Amino acid sequence: SLSVDNKKFWATVESSEHSFEVPIYAETLDEALELAEWQYVPAGFEVTRVRPCVAP
């Protein structure tokens, strides 16, 4: 099958004044980091952490 098993990760994104967490959907932690950097670094943010979303 061609289905992709995307998992939810939380990326911590920082600017000079703010820090916030955004959801990233990817297959692996490395891919989540790449996606977060691709989305947020060009906008002037720094991705400081990516972690798996742990269900309660």
Rank of each mutant, 00 (worst) to 15 (best):
P56G: 12
F45M: 06
E37T: 08
E27I: 10
S16I: 08
S1Q: 12
H18C: 15
I24A: 01
L33Y: 13
P23S: 07
P23Y: 11
I24S: 00
H18E: 11
A36G: 02
F45D: 03
C53D: 15
L29E: 06
F9Y: 09
A43Q: 15
G44K: 01
S16A: 11
V13P: 00
E31Q: 14
S19G: 03
V47Y: 00
E17W: 10
V54M: 11
V50W: 02
P56M: 10
E17H: 14
L2H: 12
A43V: 09
V4N: 13
V13Q: 01
Y40F: 08
D5M: 13
N6I: 14
E21F: 06
T28N: 10
E21K: 05
L35W: 06
F9V: 00
A55Y: 13
W10P: 00
V13H: 01
E37L: 13
K7R: 07
T28W: 03
V22T: 03
L2D: 09
A36T: 04
A32F: 03
L35N: 04
A55W: 11
D5S: 14
E37W: 09
F45T: 02
Y25H: 04
L29A: 08
A36S: 03
P23K: 07
S16D: 08
A11N: 01
F20N: 02
N6G: 10
V41D: 03
A55D: 11
T48A: 04
R49I: 14
H18L: 13
E27M: 14
Q39L: 15
E34G: 06
V13R: 00
E46G: 04
A43F: 14
C53P: 04
L2M: 10
F20K: 04
A32M: 01
S19C: 07
K7T: 07
L33Q: 09
V47Q: 01
L33H: 07
L33V: 09
H18Q: 12
C53Q: 07
P42F: 06
A36E: 01
E46C: 11
F9W: 13
T12C: 08
E37C: 08
F9T: 00
N6F: 14
K8V: 13
A32T: 00
P52Y: 12
L29F: 06
E31N: 05
A43R: 11
E17K: 10
I24Q: 00
Q39W: 14
N6P: 11
T28S: 13
Y40Q: 03
E46I: 15
A43H: 12
V50Y: 02
L35Q: 06
L35K: 13
V41R: 09
V41K: 14
E34D: 07
E37P: 01
A11W: 02
E27G: 14
D5V: 15
D30W: 14
P52V: 10
T48F: 02
A26Y: 02
V22G: 01
A36N: 00
S3P: 08
L2F: 13
L33A: 05
P23T: 09
E34H: 11
L35C: 06
A43K: 14
A55L: 10
L2N: 12
V41P: 05
F45W: 07
S19F: 07
V4M: 12
P56N: 13
P56W: 11
D30V: 11
C53K: 01
L29R: 05
H18N: 08
A43E: 09
V50L: 06
Y40S: 04
E21N: 06
H18I: 13
G44F: 02
W38R: 15
E14W: 12
L29Y: 08
S15H: 05
T28C: 05
A32Q: 00
D5F: 14
P23N: 04
L29W: 14
P23D: 05
F20V: 03
S16E: 12
G44C: 04
T12N: 03
S1H: 09
A11T: 02
A32W: 03
L33D: 01
A43G: 07
S15L: 05
E14Q: 11
A55V: 12
E27D: 11
S19W: 12
S16P: 09
R49Q: 15
A32S: 01
S15E: 03
L33E: 04
R49H: 15
S1A: 11
V22K: 02
P52L: 11
E34Q: 10
F45H: 03
V4P: 09
V47S: 01
C53Y: 06
Y40P: 03
V54E: 07
F45Q: 01
L29P: 05
A36V: 06
E17Y: 13
E21V: 10
V13N: 00
K7E: 04
K8G: 05
K7L: 09
E31W: 04
V50P: 02
K8L: 15
W38E: 13
S1Y: 08
N6T: 14
W38V: 11
Y25S: 03
Y25G: 01
Y25Q: 03
Q39E: 09
Q39I: 15
